[in-house]
């Protein structure tokens, strides 16, 4: 951005923040809160301009723009840096957490910091704060109550190896498809299911054509305020402290909001005829235990630590 060196007292700093979520998303509201926090803390010295809805390019391209310095902050998940480092594969390990509490405990602990530090060293990207996305669920056109029901299910997945492996291991027929085509795909029967956090089913109207949700909770994840590590290290201490504090405040706030909205989304979907089913996770966990074997050794180590809880 304009103030890439950001620092010397009195100097105006202008940052560009980009993400691929909509203007109403929690990600965008968190970005706005971060901008407010920073502006207040710096007495108007730091301004953050927000570009939602992939206006600056896909998140891959925005990350690259961060590295060359035309974008300063990008909101995305850990998995988004997997093409830079295998360590980011930790996000895609299925059925890793018992529940939301287990997930929060893990990432609030020192292990969470350790993982982020390792990712920074290997990829160059520093992932700060967290905007909780909630667990990913299985949203289908037919009821799925157990693993047997899911056999041969045509489920849309992003075109990534771990996703495909996971859903193949579960006996389904994973179908890579671009996100834009999911609604019409479900409507016409080209696919029978999609997997995402529950808000996705609501706000993309998927529930209208796929009114069943199985609480598989196969993945938990958050989005993070990503920075180019060297840029962050180049800031003076005062700026860094100001930034860290602003991000911490947003993270605390957004976790609370995310949990509230999760309940709200479930209530909305139930009112609109969606049937939720709890599954017995044991068989799902067992079917996918081997997936982690092909991961980076360090990731396997972390997985073992997390599973021990």
């Amino acid at each position: 951005g304009d103030g890439e060196d950001g620092g010397a007292a009195g100097e105006e700093i202008h940052w560009r923040l980009g993400h691929s979520y909509g203007p109403e998303s929690l990600e965008n509201r968190s970005a706005e809160r971060l901008a407010d926090n920073l502006e207040k803390a710096s007495d108007g010295k730091i301004t953050v301009e927000i570009f939602p809805s992939s206006q600056l390019g896909s998140w891959e391209e925005m990350q690259e723009q961060m590295e060359v310095g035309s974008v300063d902050i990008v909101i995305e998940s850990i998995g988004s840096v997997e093409r830079y480092t295998d360590l980011a594969g930790i996000e895609g390990v299925p059925f890793l957490y018992e529940d939301a509490d287990h997930y929060f405990e893990t990432w609030d602990s020192d292990l969470g910091d350790e993982i982020m530090q390792a990712i920074k060293e290997d990829s160059g990207f520093l992932l700060t704060g967290a905007i909780y996305r909630g667990p990913r669920i299985l949203n289908s056109t037919m009821p799925i109550n157990n693993l047997a029901d899911a056999e041969g299910l045509k489920i849309r997945v992003p075109n990534q190896e771990t996703y495909i492996q996971t859903w193949q291991a579960l006996g389904t027929a994973p179908t890579p498809l671009s996100f834009n085509e999911v609604f019409s795909g479900l409507e016409q029967g080209a696919i029978e299911a999609q997997e995402n956090p529950v808000n996705v089913a609501r706000f993309n109207s998927f529930y209208e054509v796929a009114p069943y949700i199985a609480n598989t909770n196969h993945l938990y994840g958050s989005n993070h305020f990503q920075l180019w590590g060297e840029t962050y290290d180049g800031w003076d201490e005062e700026t860094r402290a100001m930034y860290d504090e602003a991000v911490d405040e947003v993270s605390t706030w957004s976790r609370e909001v995310a949990l509230e909205e999760l309940d709200d989304n479930v209530a909305f979907l139930e009112e609109n005829g969606v049937t939720f089913a709890d599954v017995d996770r044991t068989e799902w966990v067992e079917a996918t235990l081997d997936i982690v074997d092909s991961a980076d050794p360090k990731v396997q180590e972390w997985v073992a630590q997390i599973r021990e809880g």
Binding site: E64, E67, V68, R83, Y84, N159, Q160
Partner: peptide, 16 residues
């Protein structure tokens, strides 16, 4: 000049 940034990213499909 962009090649350096691109060099650190892998094309996962082709790599496989």
């Amino acid at each position: 000049r962009l090649l350096e940034a691109a060099d650190r990213q892998s094309l996962s499909g082709l790599t496989m």
